[in-house]
Structure formats: structure tokens, C-alpha cells
Design a protein around this nucleic acid. Structure first.
Lengths: 221, 221
DNA sequence: TGATCCACGTCAGCAATTTGTCAGGTTGAT
DNA sequence: ATCAACCTGACAAATTGCTGACGTGGATCA
């Protein structure tokens, strides 16, 4: 599988490139935003590993332009700072996953495998789980074919759970990704939100794992 | 895919022809403006590579006459210098992309792929959505066949939304593309603009996705 | 030069929606 | 049975987007 690596730090680039090659990928590397944008827009890659701290065009901007042009390949973001706000920005911009530097090469490979698997399994920006269907391009959720009106937070919640369907997502993680911060648990806002989504999408969809978090089970083979 | 190459320099023509053939295109070559115009006007090509520095009829003039006759194939312009004025002229004349000499063959191929992909994705410079129709070459919008007078900003707004129909466009993104800057949201100018366009084109066309942005749904698959 | 028109930004008010909070209920593990 | 975790309905506050009215500046034309 062919990958694009976008990384300006030569040392890191070389390391990652070696690891990816060893793992059997064909890797092409670029070092700045413009090149990245052009390559990503004109070539077909199985996945893209994108550093955010780039010279020239900013990594997020590159990603947004790809998505704006309808390019749907899986993108894994690397960022120096482990800031949650940045993570949310990245996901909103259309990233499929995110990894904070420094990272272990095994983890990079694992996450890469994961997003690639997800993308080949899906081939589009639509996720189906049981009765409901999510179209990320249109930000539209349908229940048995009927469109459901969701508020921004409700949408973010269900989108995150669906993207991570098949595993338990902790309240902490959900909060960080829905609200963009990990406030202390002084409020039950998230629980209320879950309740509202359940009311709109049916009670059976989001399961509660008492003490652990929430789960949408994966029903797509 | 069948291509027309318009290039008077025999050496360059031969090089490009070889590269394009190797890439799997069927290439026809002409060396002057008159022939180019005739071929482009009477034959159907998947794309045209057009040198601007031609003997006889000038490349830009050829392009303009094609467009005036309603020919909509993607055209990639080659120009001797990376002159900005020439680029703007080319884009205005209806070119889809441009490339400054000297160039690397890979880049030519990539840009060609890009404009071809764009054109098959869109089939023409006309976009239809519901009752309304946009002709980008003529910068003309009609509602149920009746031309609608739009101001420059109104046109840019509707054109951007139509080009990206089928997905939600955020206010931020819309602002950047309509006004050319991403000012802080201290004004509701964009909302007012949307209102004005709605008044002219009907309220149902542009949907509001509260908290996310605007959307024109894609009704032409 | 002045009259007029048009595009467009600004503003204020409105209506609808969204969202946090709170005060009880339920539930499930031990 | 008990307790923490979780759910739910109600409510008020905050946000968001829409609209009509108005003002300004630039272009056009007499």
C-alpha cells in the first residue's frame, strides 16, 4: 500500500519512513504544506500521515482543502503538542485519527492499520450501525431512512461514538471530543446529552457500560 | 483517454507526447493556433494541453473561441514564464490550470489527472440543483429557466455552495471564499448575504445546518 | 457637478433552538 | 439494603440565525 508522509523534520521523517517501509508500505515523503496539498490532491494514497507543524501552508489547512475537494483518504495527524483543542480541530477538519509526539513506532503502525482498515471497509464517509446511518459529508443522520435533526453537540457525540463503534468510549474521552476540553465532572451535561440523543435515535443504540462509558456495537461485517 | 497537445516546439512536443503516451493517453499533436482551434472545436478530447506561445493564432485567443462556442473540456495551459498576469489571463479565458515552463513531466501528468478528475466529477461547467442552474463560464444563474440578476458577492456565494453541493459548508469557509479573508465573526454580513440570495433564488435551496453552516443538497447523481 | 442607483455593511429586534443546571428517580453491583 | 452511577423532565439562560430598515460609498449619467 502506498502512503504519503508529510513531515518537515528530517530525522523524524527518516525514522518513520524506515519503519513504514519495514512494515511493507510504499512511502513517499514531502516536507512542506504546498507539496503535501498538491500530492494529496492529485495522487491516490492508501493513507496519509500528516504533521501539523509545517513550514508554508499549515497542516490543518492542507487537510481542510483536501476534504473540501472531496478527497476522502484516511489521514493520521501527528502533532507536537498533545493539546485537546488541537485534536478536536484536527478531527473536525476531517482527520481520522491523531497521535501526539513523541510516540512509539508500534503505536503509529497500529493506528495506521486501524484507519486503513476502517477506510477500506467503508469506502466512503457513511457509517451504518443498526437502524441508523451517518453521512459525515452532509453531517446528516438518518433513522430507518428518515433524517433526524441533531444539534451540534448531539451530532458530535453520535459521530464520535459511531467512528469508534465496537469499543467502549469513556465519559472522559467523550467529553474531551465533544466539548473540546476535559472539565472536571461537576456537571452531568454529558449524560443529559446522551439522553437527548437516545430520545431522537432510539434507546437501544447507545449502550451504557456502567462505570466505564458508552458503546455502540459494531454491526457491519 | 484522448488528448490534444498544442505545442509548436518540436522537441518539447515530442517529449510531452512520449510521456503522455507512456501514461496511457492517446495523444494528437498540432503545432499552430488555427489547427488547434479547428481540432478542439470539432473533436472531443478528454483534455487539452495548450501552449500559449504559438505562431499564428494566439493560444489565449484559441481558448477563448472554444469557450465562446461552449466547448467545456478541461484545458491545461503551458506558458514560457511564470508570469502572473499571463496566469490570470489564462484563468479568465477559461483555463482549468496552468503550468510554467520549464516543468517536470510528473507535474504535468499530475495536474492533468487533477483537471480531468475534476471535469469528470462535474461533467461540465454547468451545475444543476433543483430549480436552479449555474453556468460558471457565463457566470449566469437561472431559476426555472429564467435568468436571475445576482450581485458579485451573491454570485460567489451561490457558486461556491453549488460547487460544494452535497456537503455542509461552514460559515468560516464560506466567508473565506466569498470575501477572500477569514475575518472574525463580528458581523452578520454573510447571513444577510445568504438572506438576499434566498430571496432571489427561493428559500428552499440553501439549507441551514444550525451551528455548522449551510448546505445545498446534491440532487444530481 | 449633482442626482440617482446599486451593492453591501451595520444594526437592532425577534423567534427558535440549544444547552447547562437542578431536583428527583432508577438501576445495578456488592 | 445501600450507594454510587446514571437517567429524566423541567426550566431558564445563552446562542444562533433571520429580517427589515437604514446609511455609505462608488459608479453612472445627465
Amino acid at each position: 500500500m502506498r502512503l504519503l508522509l508529510v513531515e518537515d523534520d528530517r530525522r523524524i521523517a527518516a525514522d518513520v519512513e524506515r519503519a513504514l517501509s519495514a512494515a511493507g508500505y510504499v512511502v513517499e515523503t514531502v516536507r512542506n504544506g504546498e507539496d503535501a496539498w498538491f500530492r494529496g490532491d492529485t495522487e491516490d494514497y492508501g493513507a496519509i500521515v500528516l504533521d501539523l507543524g509545517l513550514p508554508g501552508m499549515d497542516g490543518l489547512a492542507v487537510l481542510k482543502r483536501w476534504r473540501a475537494n472531496g478527497r476522502a483518504m484516511p489521514v493520521l495527524i501527528l502533532t507536537a503538542r498533545g493539546s485537546w483543542a488541537e485534536r478536536v480541530d484536527g478531527i473536525d477538519a476531517g482527520a481520522d485519527d491523531y497521535l501526539a509526539k513523541p510516540f512509539r513506532m508500534e503505536e503509529l503502525l497500529a493506528r495506521l492499520r486501524s484507519i486503513v482498515r476502517r477506510s477500506v471497509g467503508q469506502a466512503s464517509s457513511r457509517i451504518v450501525a443498526g437502524d441508523i446511518e451517518l453521512d459525515e459529508r452532509q453531517m446528516k443522520v438518518t433513522l430507518r431512512g428518515v433524517p433526524v435533526a441533531l444539534s451540534p453537540l448531539e451530532y458530535r457525540l453520535i459521530a464520535f461514538l459511531l467512528r469508534h463503534r465496537g469499543r467502549v468510549v469513556s465519559q472522559q474521552e467523550l467529553e474531551e471530543n465533544v466539548y473540546g476540553h476535559g472539565e472536571d465532572h461537576e456537571s452531568n451535561a454529558l449524560e443529559v446529552l446522551v439522553g437527548r440523543v437516545r430520545k431522537k435515535l432510539g434507546a437501544g443504540l447507545i449502550e451504557t457500560r456502567r462505570g466505564f462509558g458508552y458503546l455502540i456495537s459494531d454491526t457491519t461485517p
